[in-house]
Simulated scan of single mutants.
Amino acid sequence: MLRWIALVLLVILIGLQLKLWAGSGGMHEVRGLRAAVQKQTGENDRLLQRNQALAADVSDLKHGEQAVEARARAELGLIKPGETFYQVVERPAGSASASAPPTGDGGGH
Rank of each mutant, 00 (worst) to 15 (best):
M1K: 15
M1V: 13
L2C: 13
R3F: 11
W4C: 08
A6T: 09
L10T: 10
L10Y: 11
V11K: 03
V11T: 08
V11A: 07
L16M: 13
Q17F: 09
K19W: 10
K19P: 01
L20P: 00
L20E: 08
L20T: 08
L20W: 08
W21T: 06
A22H: 06
A22N: 14
S24L: 05
G25L: 00
G25P: 02
G26S: 02
H28N: 09
E29Q: 02
V30G: 01
V30Q: 11
V30K: 07
R31D: 12
L33W: 14
L33G: 09
L33E: 14
R34K: 09
A35Y: 08
A35N: 13
A36K: 12
A36V: 13
Q38L: 13
Q38Y: 10
K39N: 07
T41H: 09
E43T: 01
E43M: 03
E43Q: 04
N44M: 06
N44I: 06
L47T: 02
L47I: 04
L48H: 06
L48W: 07
L48E: 01
Q49S: 11
Q52H: 15
A53F: 11
L54R: 10
A55I: 03
D57T: 02
S59Q: 10
S59N: 07
D60G: 05
D60N: 10
D60H: 00
K62V: 14
A67L: 06
V68H: 01
E69C: 06
R71F: 05
R73S: 08
A74S: 11
E75L: 09
E75S: 12
L78E: 00
K80V: 05
P81S: 06
G82I: 00
E83D: 06
Y86L: 03
Y86K: 00
V88L: 03
G94Y: 05
S95L: 15
S95Q: 12
A96E: 11
A96Y: 14
S97W: 05
A98H: 04
S99L: 09
T103G: 04
G107I: 03
G108P: 01
H109F: 15
